[in-house]
Amino acid sequence: TEEFVRLWREAVRHNQTLHWNGTDFIPGDEWAEEFARREEEKL
């Protein structure tokens, strides 16, 4: 979602874990980066 992408970019900028829907998205984590890339492509 647009909100997820916005929060993810913020988390990456501050190198912080994003807690989203009970899942931890960690900047630099391969799975999280791939998920975020797919979400961005949907926008």
Rank of each mutant, 00 (worst) to 15 (best):
L18P: 00
L7M: 09
W20A: 01
L18N: 01
R37K: 11
H14A: 14
E30R: 13
H14E: 11
R9Y: 12
F4K: 00
E10M: 08
R6M: 09
Q16N: 09
H19M: 06
W31M: 08
F35H: 06
E3V: 10
N21K: 14
R13K: 15
V12M: 08
L18H: 01
E39Q: 15
A11W: 05
E41A: 14
K42L: 08
T17V: 15
W31G: 05
N21M: 15
R38V: 09
E3N: 10
F25L: 10
E34D: 12
D29V: 10
V12A: 05
G22Q: 05
E10P: 01
L18Q: 01
E33S: 05
E30I: 13
R38K: 13
L7E: 04
H19P: 03
I26C: 11
E34N: 12
E41K: 13
E10C: 14
N21A: 12
P27H: 02
E33M: 11
Q16D: 05
W31A: 09
E39G: 05
L43Y: 09
A32Q: 02
E41Q: 14
T17L: 09
L18K: 00
P27G: 02
R37V: 04
E41P: 02
A11P: 00
L18W: 02
R9L: 11
E10Q: 09
W20S: 01
A11R: 02
T17P: 13
D29P: 03
E41D: 10
V12R: 09
F25C: 06
E33T: 07
E40K: 07
E30S: 13
E2I: 13
R6W: 10
E3L: 12
Q16T: 14
T17M: 10
H14K: 15
T23Y: 15
A32H: 02
E40C: 14
N21P: 01
W31T: 06
R37D: 02
V12N: 04
W8T: 00
R13C: 15
D24R: 08
A32D: 01
E41H: 11
L43P: 03
F4E: 00
F4L: 02
N21F: 13
K42T: 06
H19C: 13
R37T: 05
F4R: 00
R37C: 14
P27I: 04
N21L: 13
E41F: 12
R6F: 11
E10N: 08
R38P: 03
T23P: 01
G28W: 03
E41Y: 12
Q16A: 11
R13D: 08
E3M: 11
F35E: 02
E30W: 12
R13A: 15
L7W: 04
A36M: 08
G28F: 03
D29E: 12
A11S: 06
W20E: 00
R38T: 08
R6Q: 07
T17H: 05
F4H: 00
F35N: 01
I26F: 09
D29S: 09
R13E: 12
R9N: 09
G28Y: 02
K42R: 12
E34S: 11
D29T: 11
T17S: 08
W20N: 00
T17C: 14
E2A: 15
F4W: 09
T23R: 15
R37Y: 05
R37G: 04
Q16M: 14
Q16F: 13
F25A: 00
E40I: 15
G28E: 02
I26K: 13
E39A: 15
A36Q: 01
V5L: 15
N15E: 05
T1P: 14
W20K: 00
L7N: 05
K42D: 03
I26N: 11
T17F: 06
T17A: 12
W31K: 08
D24T: 12
G22A: 06
L7G: 03
P27A: 03
R6H: 09
L7I: 03
H14N: 15
R13W: 11
E39D: 02
P27E: 01
E2H: 13
F35M: 06
E39L: 15
E2N: 10
N15H: 10
R13I: 13
L43W: 10
L18A: 03
H19Q: 09
R38G: 08
F35Q: 04
H14Q: 15
R9S: 05
W8G: 01
K42Q: 07
R6P: 03
P27L: 04
E2P: 09
T23V: 15
E39Y: 14
N21S: 08
D29N: 11
F35K: 03
F35P: 00
E34A: 14
H14Y: 14
E40P: 04
H19T: 13
W31V: 08
N15S: 09
